[in-house]
Simulated scan of single mutants.
Amino acid sequence: MYTRAEVYSPLQNTAIWLAAWLYSVESTDETVAALTDLGGRHSYGGQGLAALLLDARASADLSSHEPVVRLILWGPGQAAGLHAGSAAAEALGPAGAIVIKAAGGFSHVLVPRYWDDGVEWRWFEEKKRLPEPSWLSPGEADSLLSRATEQAAVLIEAAGGTRSDLPNPRLTVGTLADFYDTPGLPRGVTPRAAKVLARADRVAAIVETVTDRLGDHSYDPQLFALWRHIRTARMAGVADAVQDYRRASIS
């Protein structure tokens, strides 16, 4: 199994850039450039990224006390936060989805499909309230990932000394962590959100290094158990960043 699909999604940064644009923290030009870096050419109902952004702005309830933009990730051991059997749930792929909170309890679910040269978006409306996420704080999610990091570091040290084709696994981890963070986050992301997202990047890089780059699958049961914590940390970091944009907009 290719690990990256389970521990990384460009939707993490896409969701934060979208929120930064909705709250006028980032310009349209900067947002379009960042989203293009993250996904390539965007297709939305036969139109491009501009149409998607305009629909997002028209639909978002920026006064909502809940995060107006929310990230949904899912995978083994972790159900998606969508209604089972709904059109959005049926369309959901491994990359996850973005939820935009609308007025009146409505939610809009943006489901991407990534191709080699771009991303295709589908838009769904949910009239019923979506299942509640775990709503972990960045501190709680970071604590879980901190323990996961300690465990994963021991595993990679045990695996790294016996492979001549990858003599410096820690260097590989650093390179992969840089990849996960590209093209970076918009302005105004809280330090606590940035910290938990950076830790998620590093743990994901460790998991990928051991399983895919070192080709050592003897630790798969332990490493696979980390996937849920990585995804949860990404969702918690996005929610915190979005909420801080809202607080800043009304202060």
Rank of each mutant, 00 (worst) to 15 (best):
T149H: 12
L92T: 08
P10A: 09
A159C: 09
I156R: 12
H229C: 00
G237V: 12
G237I: 07
E157A: 14
R122I: 01
R70D: 02
L155V: 11
V25Q: 04
Q222K: 12
E150M: 12
P183G: 07
F179L: 12
E208D: 09
L197Y: 12
Y8V: 11
P183I: 08
G215E: 03
R4A: 10
A236F: 08
H65P: 09
T162I: 07
L53T: 06
L171M: 06
W21K: 00
S27E: 04
V238T: 08
P167E: 04
E120F: 12
D201I: 02
E120G: 08
P76M: 00
V173C: 03
G184C: 02
G161P: 04
A159Q: 02
H217L: 10
M1D: 01
M235H: 02
V203G: 03
D220E: 12
L166Q: 06
L110R: 08
A233G: 13
I16G: 00
S24I: 03
L110C: 10
R231F: 09
S249H: 12
R57I: 02
L130A: 05
L11E: 02
A241P: 08
W123V: 02
D216R: 03
D37M: 14
R192A: 14
E30P: 00
H65G: 14
N13Y: 05
